[in-house]
Amino acid sequence: MKKSIQYLCIGLVLTFLYAPILILVFYSFTNATMIGATRGFSLHNYQTLFGTPELQAMIFGTLLLALLVAILSTLLGTAGAIGAFYSKKHTRGVLEMANEIPVVNADVVTGFSMCILMIAIFKVSKETYIPLIVGQTALCTPFVYLSVMPRLKQMDGQLYEAALDLGCKPFQALFKVVLPQIVPGILSGFMMAVTLSLDDYFVATYTKPATFDTISTYVVNATKGSQTSIKTALWALSAIIFVIVVVVVLDMNWRAGKKHE
């Protein structure tokens, strides 16, 4: 295949993926109320974003939720993976089948079923935040499990035994020998959980308290509403998130590349 065609193809797909975001980033620095209008440079979107208590509460709430859910998922998923790794094949198979359910299931179904479970069976009010946290944890934990398990399989199993022979208690051996070997898996699982929680709309919308909004649910409501200043302030939020994601991903990529060398 000719090189020019290849460049063209990759270029077109990348344009499709990035043009909307980049244009939005550009317009977030203007006082335009819609894309295409030519207006002057302005930071008022950023001022609105950081000056509106409602928006701040929403962003802070989303981040706090993502962090909490990610910590819970990482603890559950890592412990689960270690336990399953040392269990019988049959037990592990059953666990992995259940683990697979939230991964393949539609998020709408996960959210909807979690909601009726909580309300009808456990009688837990959505205002307690428990359904939201449990729901998102159920969504994220399988991915932590799936990123920790391959690391356990690659691990040198004899080191654990060596630690026991040298007088370590099993618990010590686990913390000082097994855990350090699977840290990369745990970290990438944690990152996955954070991203999934930040990205989640469906579980949140079915399980969240009425007065609480995550970025996703807020954006969906804001696009239906007519408040232009909020709408354009969200452009600024997109720009900030875009920059953060680019920095984090490039940094991870750079570190991975360095390790390869």
């Binding site: 412990a79 069976i121 686990l174």
Partner: peptide, 27 residues
């Protein structure tokens, strides 16, 4: 009283039963 590595699975197994498998039965 000894700690077993397998037991680490219990919290997640219980969690999966109650919050992943049970919702499907409710549905």
């Amino acid at each position: 009283s000894y700690f077993s590595r397998k037991q680490l699975m219990i919290p997640y197994a219980v969690f999966l039963c109650f919050f992943v498998v049970l919702p499907l039965f409710v549905v």
